[in-house]
Structures are given as structure tokens and as C-alpha cells.
């Protein structure tokens, strides 16, 4: 959130600065032109999410490898608190012991991984992009095309990818628990009632429900993190307007400091809460797949 030096040499306008920061680095090297283009993938999102995911499983695995039933160390105790929390929540939502063996670890992964990805928001917005810009320029490329977004959860592809994975799991558990026939019967008989004339409406309603759950699941996380990141960028603009030791610049820099500090502190809550909400909704949706209407 703290960088006033971004704009000094190239001096882009505020709009250009924001637009640059909101552009993903994809495999074409250019800004994505079409709304949907499955020929492209976002290198930055994948890089940071995979690195953070590896960090997640590395930390969790370290705790798991050293876990003993004796007196736990602080790190082990912290991981155990997380595991207990997730296990309790899973127990409340999913009444199948066998499913919990898969879904509870899933919820733990979701929570810790998303927390780490969200926490990238707390890094100064220009820190990693500036480093990347330097590397990109040093490699002989045009620094204006050195795009980089460091918060993977502010990429709708990442969040929707996860929510679609959850949808697939819901479909899987629906079939597994109720059987293909039982589930199909539920699709055409609930929520309006079991009647041949109502079947199309029931089915449409269920399809809409699945779509709405999945889209809102992914969009909620994306929206929160995107907005948070955008506000950090707007705050960074205040310090970015530095023109020398004059009253407006000093006032703006002070505003940058105060706003950045308070937004970052508030954001600690947001990133934790959003990770928790994503995890809880994952459990709720998979739990619903276990319950008949």
C-alpha cells in the first residue's frame, strides 16, 4: 500500500496506473481482449496461488509430520487449533463420517490457502509489480507491459475455479449419497412437489440453484478481494501524487499513511473472514448434497 515512487518517471495518469495494476500477466503478454478466451491463462495468478498453495501444504505437512500426542509446541498447537476448528465445523454440517474424511481436509486446505492468497493484499501494492517491472525491463522488454497482480483471489478465474470444483464435488456427493436415480428424482420433485406437471419447474429451479450457489460462492470472494485491492491502489494514488515538499503533497502523503494503515488493519479482518466464509460455504454446499429435500 505504500509506494509513492511509482509515477515519477513514466508519470502515467491515475487511470493508467489503476488500469496497469488491474491487468493480469497472461501467456500472451498483452491485455486480454475478449471477455472469455480459453486460449489464455494468467501466469501471475497461477504462480502466486501455486506458490502459496505449496507454502500451505508445506506448513501443514510440517506440523503433521511432527505431530505427537505429547505436549505440543506453539506451531503444532496453532495448526491443531485450526484443525479442531475445521473438524468441528465439518461435523456440524456433514453427517457422514466417510465424507468428512475427505471434506474436512478440503475445508482446511481451502481456509489456509485462501487466507494466504488474501493476505497478499497486505503487501504494498507496488512492491512486487515494481520488482517485476525491473526484471522485465532488464530482460529487454517494454516495462509498460510488465503486468503483475499479486492477489490470486482478486482474479475471478481463481475463485470461480475453486467454486466450480466445489460444485463438482456437490454433484459427486449427490450421486454418491442418493444414487443417480434418487438424485434425478429429487431434481424433478423438489422444491415444488412431486407431480409430472411440476417436474420441469422443479428441474429448472434446481439448475438455477446450483448455478447461483456456485457463482455467488466464487464471486463473493473475488468481489471482496478485488475491492480491497482496488482501495489499496486508490490509497496508493495519494502518495503517488507527491510533487515535492509542498503542503498538498505532505497532506496527501499523511492521508495515504492514515488511510493505508486503517484499511490494512480492517483488511486483516476481511481476509480472515472471507477465507472463513468460503470454507463454511464449501461445507454447507457439500453438506446440502448429503441431505435429501
Amino acid at each position: 500500500m505504500a509506494s509513492g515512487t511509482e509515477l515519477t518517471h513514466a508519470a502515467p495518469t491515475a487511470g493508467e496506473y489503476i488500469a496497469h495494476h488491474l491487468t493480469f500477466l497472461n501467456n500472451s503478454g498483452e491485455m486480454q481482449a475478449n471477455l472469455i478466451d480459453f486460449g489464455l491463462y494468467n501466469v501471475d495468478t497461477l504462480f502466486y496461488s501455486i506458490v502459496l498453495g505449496l507454502l500451505t501444504v508445506f506448513l501443514l505437512h510440517r506440523a503433521a509430520a511432527k505431530a505427537t500426542s505429547g505436549v505440543p509446541g506453539r506451531f503444532q498447537a496453532a495448526v491443531e487449533i485450526l484443525v479442531e476448528m475445521v473438524a468441528d465445523q465439518a461435523k456440524g454440517m456433514i453427517h457422514s463420517e466417510e465424507s468428512r474424511r475427505f471434506v474436512a481436509p478440503l475445508a482446511l486446505t481451502v481456509f489456509v490457502w485462501i487466507f494466504f492468497m488474501n493476505a497478499m493484499d497486505l503487501l504494498p501494492v507496488d512492491l512486487l509489480p515494481r520488482i517485476w517491472e525491473g526484471v522485465y525491463a532488464a530482460a529487454g522488454h517494454d516495462p509498460h507491459h510488465a503486468y503483475m497482480r499479486v492477489v490470486p483471489t482478486a482474479d475471478i478465474n481463481a475463485t470461480m475455479g475453486m467454486s466450480i470444483a466445489v460444485l463438482l464435488l456437490c454433484l459427486y456427493y449427490n450421486v454418491k449419497i442418493k444414487g443417480a436415480g434418487g438424485w434425478f428424482h429429487e431434481l424433478i420433485s423438489a422444491p415444488f412437489g412431486n407431480h409430472i406437471l411440476l417436474a420441469p419447474f422443479n428441474f429448472a429451479m434446481n439448475v438455477i440453484e446450483f448455478l447461483a450457489k456456485t457463482v455467488s460462492h466464487g464471486m463473493r470472494l473475488f468481489g471482496n478481494m478485488f475491492a480491497g485491492e482496488l482501495i489499496f491502489m486508490l490509497i496508493a494514488l495519494m502518495g503517488g501524487a507527491w510533487t515535492g515538499m509542498n503542503a498538498p503533497s505532505i497532506l496527501l502523503a499523511a492521508g495515504h499513511f492514515v488511510a493505508g494503515l486503517s484499511w490494512a488493519i480492517f483488511h486483516i479482518l476481511v481476509i480472515t473472514l472471507q477465507a472463513f466464509i468460503f470454507m463454511m460455504l464449501t461445507l454447507v454446499y457439500i453438506g446440502q448434497a448429503h441431505d435429501g429435500h
Binding site: G39, S49, V57, W113, I156, A165, F222, F226
Partner: peptide
């Protein structure tokens, strides 16, 4: 908010970590 293949890769990555 452009959709691209990141979505599918992320899905696979996610399930691998799980």
C-alpha cells in the same frame, strides 16, 4: 474480470492440494 483457462488450471491445482 475476464475468464480464461486460469479457471480450469486453478480447479486442478485446488483439487491437487486438497
Amino acid at each position: 474480470m475476464n475468464l480464461n483457462a486460469t479457471l480450469i488450471i486453478q480447479l486442478v491445482v485446488f483439487l491437487s492440494f486438497v
